[in-house]
């Protein structure tokens, strides 16, 4: 019983390290900068497009390799990635547009919001709390929204 808990926490260590790695990459590549997001939406630099584009290419090649070779994860489970349900598609373009409005205003998607707090822009904690409130509001209204 007691021996299980430390092991559980130990399991989390790789995720902590990946997070630290992300925070460094986000900061050093300036994707957490409101200015960079503005530059992207004004089509005035290739920087953000290059980052997102090359991230997708690397992820795409490796995900296809994982799927084709039926790779297993470290726990020995076959890796499965559930497909996203299209439905009417409304949730994707409508939710996506709402997200985009917020992305351009805050200049940060959820990951970078947290990296900014680490960078000392502590006022972003307010944006994070607002984002939690937004997610909560979605949960409340979910059954009434077209999906």
């Amino acid at each position: 019983m007691n021996s299980k808990k430390p092991q559980g926490l130990f399991h989390l260590l790789p995720y902590l390290l990946i997070g630290v790695y992300f925070g460094i990459v986000f900061t050093k590549s300036e994707v957490i900068s409101w200015f960079r997001i503005q530059e992207m939406f004004r089509f005035q630099s290739f920087h953000m497009y290059g980052i997102i584009g090359s991230a997708v290419v690397v992820a795409l090649l490796s995900v296809q390799w994982i799927k084709r070779t039926n790779k297993r994860d470290l726990d020995g489970e076959v890796i499965t990635i559930p497909p996203k349900e299209m439905g009417s598609g409304t949730r994707y373009w409508m939710g996506g547009t709402i997200f985009g409005l917020g992305w351009a205003l805050t200049g940060a998607c959820p990951g970078p919001m947290f990296a900014l707090v680490g960078n000392g822009i502590t006022v972003m904690t307010v944006a994070i709390l607002s984002a939690v409130a937004g997610t909560f509001t979605y949960g409340v209204l979910r059954s009434k929204l077209p999906h």
Partner: peptide, 25 residues
Amino acid sequence: FIVLGGFLVGFGTRYAGGCTSGHAI
């Protein structure tokens, strides 16, 4: 920029079922 922007990010991402990481990447 901060309060409304953050709210739209949180609402929109869950409505859309993902953000930049989940959908775009």
